[in-house]
């Protein structure tokens, strides 16, 4: 049972992480190739505090705060660049993050932080906490989606210049998306740090950023349910693949390519197509 709980907790964390990127990339249309940096910021903040004896639940607040603060700074910087320039700038953020962490003695340098205390409510408790966090964040994103903010995000994602023309305060909404998204990643990071109980710079690199972006795109950009399905599926994939461990990355890479080639609208698009076909019949 313990093994299943670990897998399920990992899935919950991945879903939270993917939902947080979905706010930035899905809702607001700002591509981020560096979202793992914020997972890392949350993880490091929470891990350092909990090693000092702060209870896990309390560390959520500074972990989210720290990630959102850096997210705000990156957001302000990102206001100057668009499209592909933005993609590469955010990619730079994740390289800067790992590059800086590697060289800081306090943060454990190359080796990372080991011996993060286990949460006092045990594995099942951690799973329940993760599930609650996912649920809370899910409600938040559904609420955003349905509010005026959601409409503003949509218009910015569709056509930034027209949105500006309509009198939408584009920078304000972009920054809001960055803050909400990076705070979510920080929360996921705090959970992640206590799930694996060992973190290092390599856990938050470019590959992790791509994996989470892949979850959002395979799910269907902007679709909440599609992203949840894709994140749960893709994060559990390595477990199914253990038999073919040697070819794991080969299969993963080809899967990404295949998904883009044959179903570029993602799971969301596939489901809609099926529903539409049913309706026609």
């Amino acid at each position: 049972m313990a093994y299943e709980i670990v897998v399920l907790t990992n899935m919950a964390i991945a879903v939270l992480f993917a939902l947080s990127l979905n706010v930035i990339t899905g809702f607001c249309g700002q591509v981020s190739l560096g979202h793992a940096a914020f997972l890392g910021i949350g993880a490091y903040t929470s891990a350092m505090l909990s090693k000092e004896g702060v209870p896990l639940i309390i560390t959520f607040i500074p972990a989210m705060g720290m990630a959102a603060l850096i997210g705000l700074i990156v957001g302000v910087a990102s206001l100057r660049v668009r499209h592909d320039f933005l993609a590469i700038t955010t990619m730079g953020v994740v390289f800067l993050f790992t590059g800086i962490v590697r060289k800081q003695e306090i943060l454990g340098g190359e080796i990372g932080i080991a011996g993060i205390p286990a949460p006092d409510f045990g594995r099942v408790g951690l799973f329940a906490t993760s599930l609650l966090c996912v649920l809370a964040y899910l409600l938040l994103t559904i609420w955003i989606r349905r509010s005026w903010t959601g409409f503003a995000f949509d218009s910015i994602a569709e056509d930034e210049d027209t949105a500006r023309l309509l009198g939408i305060n584009v920078p304000k909404f972009k920054l809001f998306a960055f803050v909400v998204g990076t705070a979510g990643a920080g929360l996921a990071g705090a959970l992640y740090a206590h799930q694996v109980r060992f973190i290092g710079p390599d856990s938050f690199g470019f590959v992790e950023s791509i994996s989470v972006l892949a979850m959002v795109i395979v799910g269907g950009i902007g679709s909440i349910w599609g992203v949840i399905l894709a994140a749960a599926f893709l994060s559990a994939l390595p477990q199914f693949f253990q038999v073919i461990d040697d070819y794991k990355l080969l299969v993963y890479g080809l899967l990404l390519f295949g998904a883009m080639r044959f179903a570029p609208e993602g799971i969301d698009g596939l489901l809609k197509k099926i529903v539409r076909r049913r309706a026609v019949k």
Partner: peptide, 26 residues
């Protein structure tokens, strides 16, 4: 993928790149 959003080709390209590293190893 020419008529798709640039992000789609980017992810497809990254997928091929990840797979290729594994192919070289094999």
């Amino acid at each position: 993928l020419l008529n798709r959003a640039p992000l789609i080709s980017l992810i497809a390209s990254i997928g091929i790149f990840i797979a290729s590293e594994e192919l070289f190893r094999i």
